[in-house]
Write a protein that binds this DNA or RNA. Structure first.
Length: 438
DNA sequence: TCTGGGGTCCTAGGACCC
DNA sequence: TCTGGGGTCCTAGGACCC
């Protein structure tokens, strides 16, 4: 238990200096940096989804909002430039941003593609600058080298640094020292806090807590009675205590890998839904193989038109990242939640309880030869996909999700075990449509 | 924000064990 | 066999983030 005395002593003697760096309209800014002729124009990314995912400030000024339909955007802003999101390219900008940040401190958390934290504590001496000077220098270097601006917040904790970076945007710099906290929080609605979503906001309002200041004014004891751990921690963070540490290790692994797909119109055709799930499974397995992970648990879920999700999961006795190993589990799970006559609008697969491939020792009872063979088969599939596009080789079961132009559309008798090859690769390599049965 | 896709963490409650 | 207490593990579901 942390007593009040201990807490405040900690704050007074050793306040942290946490900077939060947040890219301004990051995706749109990357595009503008690459294509200077777009400067000053309304730029929107998200073409592939049909809705705006990132917008330039000019687009915002013209009334475009995140999530807006592209057709609607064209109406209110006819000269808008609409681009597909190019994550590969944005990742390169992101990488450069974090490299610049690391010049000032090694303690960097890459929180998202367009934002991160830097712990500047202890760097005043070595850099011969105040914390504010360091944070400003960091911002200046990023702005100049990336070709677009970021907004920076400086505060004693992560959640306050987040508030600070959002305080003035774009191209903002805001510092919230411990003494100034109340001033910033008194006008801030609780729903703007990091970690407070619509449900918690509603709950807080029902307790008469409307602003962030209302929240931190409550005694800690009260907060412990009414809220669970994350919001108790948030209360301390907002008081200027450093509670949530920076996660500075590079993310090397995943807790889970999921793939979902929404389709229109909704469908209640079990064969079609199962085909979608098979394709979700193939996608998830591709990612798992790329990261050298195998799943011990698999989750299947279906989303109805009304967003009432149904999900079931199963343990996998033999951890795997091969779709043909897992598809029978998917079929069983699907059958247990699928309801006749119910239109579904999306399916999803989650691979969970992931472990490194190397940690799995094959049981004495299973054929070592078969496992070796599957590794070679999927190594070949992955390289064919790399050469001719994703899903060049796929299970017969996911056939129904592909368009006719791309594939022949024929039904296969055995959807679970046949590996089919896409037309382009077939013609180039002169291989049969049914590559093999496994 | 009438809703896309990919994640993480927390909690309550049940099963099961001494 | 009506009954006490405590621990651990697992699962389902909720909530939130970008």
């Amino acid at each position: 238990m942390i007593g009040a005395w201990e807490t405040s002593k900690h704050i007074l003697e050793f306040p942290r200096a946490i900077a939060h760096i947040d890219g301004d309209a990051f995706f749109a800014s990357c595009e503008t940096a690459l294509h200077p002729e777009l400067r000053g124009r309304a730029v929107v990314t998200g073409k592939e989804r049909g809705i705006a995912s990132s917008l330039s400030y000019e687009a915002k000024r013209r009334g475009v909002r995140r999530g807006m339909m592209l057709s609607e955007i064209k109406k209110i802003c006819p000269d808008v430039v609409i681009l597909p999101s190019d994550y590969e390219t944005y990742s390169l900008f992101s990488k450069r941003m974090f490299e610049i940040m690391r010049r000032y401190t090694g303690a960097i958390e890459e929180y998202g593609i367009d934002e991160g934290f830097a712990d500047l504590t202890g760097m005043r001496g070595p850099l011969r600058m105040s914390y504010e000077e360091i944070a400003r220098a960091m911002k200046k270097a990023i702005d100049e080298e990336l070709g677009f601006t970021v907004s920076v917040g400086l505060a004693p904790s992560k959640s306050l640094a987040k508030i600070a970076s959002k305080w003035q945007k774009p191209n903002g710099f805001t510092s919230i020292p411990g003494k100034a906290i109340n001033g910033y929080l008194s006008a801030l609605p609780v729903e703007n806090l990091w970690g407070v979503g619509p449900n918690t906001a509603k709950y807080m309002n029902s307790l008469g807590i409307v602003t962030a200041y209302d929240f931190i004014s409550k005694p800690f004891q009260y907060v412990c009675e009414k809220f669970s751990k994350p919001h108790q921690e948030m209360w301390r963070e907002l008081h200027g205590e450093y509670v949530w540490p920076l996660v500075t290790e590079e993310k090397t692994s995943y807790a889970s890998i999921s793939k979902t797909k929404t389709f229109t119109p909704p469908s209640s055709d079990s064969e079609y839904l199962m085909a979608q799930l098979t394709r979700n499974l193939e996608n998830a397995c591709i990612k798992a193989r790329r990261h050298g992970l195998v799943a011990k648990k698999i989750v299947v879920y279906l989303r109805t038109q009304h967003f009432a999700d149904a999900a079931v999961e199963a343990k996998i006795t033999r951890a795997s990242n091969f779709p043909n190993d897992l598809v029978s589990h998917v079929r069983t799970l699907f059958a247990s939640i699928y309801k006749l006559q119910t239109p579904y609008r999306a399916t999803g697969i989650v691979l969970a309880d992931l472990e490194p491939e190397s940690s799995i020792q094959s049981s004495l009872f299973e054929s070592v030869i078969r496992v070796e063979k599957m590794h070679r088969v999927y190594a070949a599939i992955d390289s064919l996909d790399a050469a001719f596009g994703k899903h060049t080789v796929h299970l017969g079961g996911s056939q129904a999700t592909f368009t006719r132009e791309q594939y022949t559309g024929e039904r296969t008798r055995d959807t679970g075990r046949e590996l089919l090859v896409g037309e382009t690769a077939r013609q180039h390599l002169n291989i049969p449509r049914i590559m093999m049965r496994i």
